[in-house]
Every structure is written in structure tokens, then in C-alpha cells.
Amino acid sequence: MPDATGADGLTVGQVSARLGVTVRALHHWDEIGLARPSLRTAAGYRLYTAGDLERLHRIVVYREIGLGLDRIRAVLDDSAADVPGALREQRAQVAERIDRLQQLSAGLDRMIDAHERGLLLTAEQQAAIFGPRWNPDWPAEARQRYGDTTQWRQYAERSASRDPEEWQAIADAVADLDRALGDAMDAGVPPGSPEANALVERHREVFASYFPLTRQMQVCLGRMFEADPGFAAHYDGIRAGLATWFRRSVDASARAHGIDPDTATWQ
């Protein structure tokens, strides 16, 4: 519908452009009696007077600070309305939203850092939690190697919400598992035995602190622990030959669950 013109008022389109509100909003406010134009053209088009425009200005301001339309109506039309009280109440609500948004922003910052760095701990915290043999460059190397994988994203999202105490609990669980693996090997526990299978299950539970680990993925990890010089050095540093014993134990457990270790893939 084209804008009508009138010497005594502004058309809907003109008011819309001047106040930055939609024509649809102006029509709605008219329909609910919040801001009705005082004039009409002979053809029935709405015309807003200077007084109408002043009321609309106030509606726009109150809406911008978050008041609902019913509250705006009360503020504008109820002579007994406590306008300062309504504004203070709204200010308190805005302050709460700002606080929530600041917390959200801080959470997003941690999530971004976790995706980019992996471990949100200082070098000193890492050494205190993971021990003097820990290399603080390892998280960056892991990001470079695995950063495009689903598992890195899962690890980063969990890392973003963890504090040093939670990482300490995970490090303690890993250390306890390593000791249990070494003790089992010393005791001559054979791969495929109930004792060895229980340790394989425990490894999956502990490793799930980083990302969900399927049995097939665990088989792949067992191979890597044996073949990769860094991982092999870690396990063989606990007990000579432990990397191979653990890989054989993982393979035996996988076979017991119908998985062929020779064809297992990372899935």
C-alpha cells in the first residue's frame, strides 16, 4: 500500500523510517491500542501527529531497555505507575543478563583456548600434576597431530570445563592404572585372562576422561603404544616389555568381544 500524505501528520511509512521500527510493529501497536494514530486520511490511511510521535518515541525507548508491551502501557497510561521503580527493576534484570553474558563470554574464551591449546594449565601446573617427566610442549604437538579429529574436539570440550583438581584426579587414575598394569605383568597375568581383561576395561574407563573410546579404537591405541617410540618408552619405563604385554591384552579382550585386532580400525 503506498504511503498517503497529509498536511497534519506523518504516514506509517514515514514514521517507520524516522523511528526505525517496522510498519508491521506500528500496525500491531495500533491494533492493541498501545499507540493509535490520531488522524486518518479520507481514504482511511493512518496519520500520526506530533503527540503520537512523542508517545512512539517513548515506546521505542522503553522497548529498547527491555520492557514488555504491557509494562510499557502501564508506564505510559497509569498515572499511579512507579516509573522509577519499573526502571530500577529493569536495570537489575539487565545487570543479571550482563553477568550471564560475561560468564558466557568467559566460557567461550576457555572453549576457544581449549580447542587451540588442548590443556588449560600453566607449565608449572602441568609439572605439578603430571610429574617432572611431563613435557609442556606435548599438548601443542598433539593439537598439531590430531587437531582435525572428532576426538580432539571432544577432548577440548571436556578440557575447557576442568580445573587443576579435576586434572589431578585424572592423573592419579592414570598413575594407578599404570602401576596395576606393571604389577599384573610382574605377577605373570596372561593376556586374555579375567584379570587382564579387567585391566583392559579399566583402561577404557580411565581413557574415557579424554574422549569416548571404543574397543576398536583401543586396539589401535594398543598398537600405537607398542610401535610409537614415545609411548613405548613410557610403558617400558614402568616395566620392560609392558607395551607389548598391554597390546596383547587389548587384542585378546577384543577377540573375546568378536573384534579381529588385525582388521580393527579407528572407529
Rank of each mutant, 00 (worst) to 15 (best):
A74Q: 13
S209P: 00
I170W: 12
G20D: 07
Q154Y: 11
R223M: 08
A140G: 01
L181N: 03
E64G: 14
G33V: 00
G66A: 06
S193W: 10
D52A: 06
F207P: 02
P84K: 04
Q93W: 02
A95L: 15
Q126F: 03
Q14H: 05
S105A: 15
T150N: 04
Q125G: 09
Q144W: 03
D148F: 06
E141K: 07
I59C: 10
A50E: 15
L69P: 05
D3G: 00
D30I: 02
A42R: 15
E116G: 09
A42P: 05
R97T: 04
F246P: 00
P84W: 06
D70K: 07
R63N: 06
M185K: 13
E64D: 15
L242R: 01
D113K: 09
W138A: 14
T244Y: 01
G258D: 11
R63L: 14
P261A: 11
N135V: 06
R24I: 10
E205Y: 02
L10Y: 08
R91Q: 13
Y146E: 06
A127L: 12
L119T: 10
L121W: 02
I112N: 10
D30Y: 04
R24Y: 06
P2L: 10
Q267V: 05
L69H: 05
T265Q: 13
Q126A: 12
F231I: 05
R63A: 12
V219Q: 11
H257G: 09
V189A: 15
D186T: 14
G51I: 02
H27S: 10
A171K: 01
D236K: 01
Y45W: 09
A140R: 15
A198F: 04
R202P: 02
T122K: 02
P191W: 06
V61F: 13
T265C: 04
D183C: 05
N197M: 10
A95W: 01
S16Y: 07
I32A: 09
A80S: 15
A252W: 00
D8K: 03
T5H: 13
R162P: 03
C220T: 11
R71E: 15
Q144L: 13
V189M: 09
S16P: 12
T244A: 14
R100L: 14
G66Q: 06
S253P: 00
R145F: 03
